[in-house]
Simulated scan of single mutants.
Amino acid sequence: MHPPRFWSDPDGGPIARLLAPAAALYALGTARRVRRPGWRAPVPVLCCGNLTAGGAGKTTLALDLGRRLVARGRRVHFLTRGYGGRVRGPVRVDPARHAADAVGDEALLLARVAPCIVAADRAAGARAAIAAGADCLVMDDGFQNPGLCQDMPLLVIDGASGFGNGRVLPAGPLREPVAAGAARARAAVLVGDDLTGASAALPERLPVLRAQLDMDDAGALLDGRTAIAFAGIGRPDKFFDGLRRQGVPLAACLPFPDHHPYRDHDLRRLGDAARAHDAILLTTPKDAVRLPVAFRPQVRTVDVRLAWTDPAAPDRLLDLWLEETPR
């Protein structure tokens, strides 16, 4: 589903106010859950999480930090719930054997960088990773999951959407109040320009690292033709706007819900649109792994990465994490 429009209104309006009692109960339930004691792993644990429902760039950050840890010679393993997949785990992702409907799209991307364990039970996933030789763990999501103690909980914030109307589900997009979540975080990572003033809602003691999404040169993939862009991510417009900033000639932009499983009728729609406009289909890596293998040759993928305002900031953060938790 697409997020309701009132989630992005300044105060949510009458619908948000009507849902305020349900939001209060949701926030209370989250507060009780995160207070439960979790299992402390014998290796350092970092979590890339967020406070809102939907995408904020957690997987992009996890991939960035994972690559840095691999370059340092660390035996990093990723942990993820495998959202959108049916496997509960713990299971190590094998891209040659697993598809997105089994382990989720994000797990397949993570497994390209380092071993990735899918597990609904984060502590069980951590034990499996450690048994396989992990000397540090990077969680993709799970900020509100208390099952595994997090030595370095990071809040990822999308600069364009921020915290929405500032209200908790279902009155707004927040999984918990900003103050409650920020109190547990060690740092925040703001991706994109802070268009909503989200950083002002964070406590002064919380370090804020800043980055922009940097996309591959999509124009080089087009052979002089126009493009039809499609994306089923948390905010498809983030992908489309990035292409526009590059000056990519777009015949159409087709948004889909986050983690959308592409069916035959979707593929026909995409193929028909490409033929009608004599256009190249462009999508994100996260969408590409959800496409049937036979359809992928018809699509070109535009990769994204983080471009840090301070290029040394992420390595300083990793240094702090590993020095504080040398287990």
Rank of each mutant, 00 (worst) to 15 (best):
D105S: 06
M215H: 10
L322R: 08
A188I: 02
L69W: 01
V302E: 03
L65S: 14
G125K: 08
I15E: 11
R88T: 15
V93N: 04
P146Y: 06
R92D: 00
P115M: 07
R92Y: 02
Q150E: 04
V191A: 07
P90K: 08
G73Q: 02
L322Q: 14
L65V: 15
R235Q: 13
P153S: 11
L174Y: 06
G234T: 11
R17W: 05
A171L: 10
L254A: 13
R122C: 03
R305E: 10
G197Y: 00
G125M: 09
V91N: 09
L79H: 00
P21N: 09
G159Q: 00
P153N: 07
D64W: 10
D272L: 10
A279T: 03
A123I: 00
T284L: 05
R205L: 00
I228M: 08
R127Y: 04
L154C: 14
T301S: 10
D105L: 03
D9A: 15
C48I: 08
I15L: 14
Q150P: 08
H77L: 02
C47E: 11
G232M: 12
G164H: 06
A119C: 08
V156A: 08
A288D: 04
C47T: 14
R127P: 06
A56W: 01
G181A: 07
A128S: 11
T283E: 12
G192Y: 09
V93A: 06
R88H: 13
L243K: 04
T309M: 06
T226P: 13
A53L: 13
H259Q: 06
A16F: 09
L190T: 08
C136Q: 11
F256V: 02
Q150F: 12
F78N: 15
A126N: 13
S8V: 09
L18K: 02
R88L: 14
G224Q: 12
L109H: 00
A71M: 05
V189K: 04
A312S: 15
R40V: 03
L243D: 05
A22K: 03
V34K: 03
A231W: 14
L243M: 07
D216M: 04
G234Q: 07
L51V: 00
L69D: 05
D141I: 06
R122V: 05
R72K: 10
D237Q: 15
A123C: 14
A229G: 04
V43C: 01
T325F: 10
R97S: 13
G271Q: 15
G162S: 08
A183L: 12
D193N: 05
D278A: 14
A187Y: 01
A16S: 15
R235E: 08
A20Q: 13
D105T: 00
P170Q: 09
G82I: 01
A182V: 11
R184T: 12
I280N: 05
P21D: 09
P115Y: 11
P10K: 14
A274F: 09
D140C: 03
L281S: 02
G66F: 06
A23P: 05
L291D: 06
L202I: 02
F78Q: 12
V70C: 13
D258C: 05
G104E: 05
T226A: 15
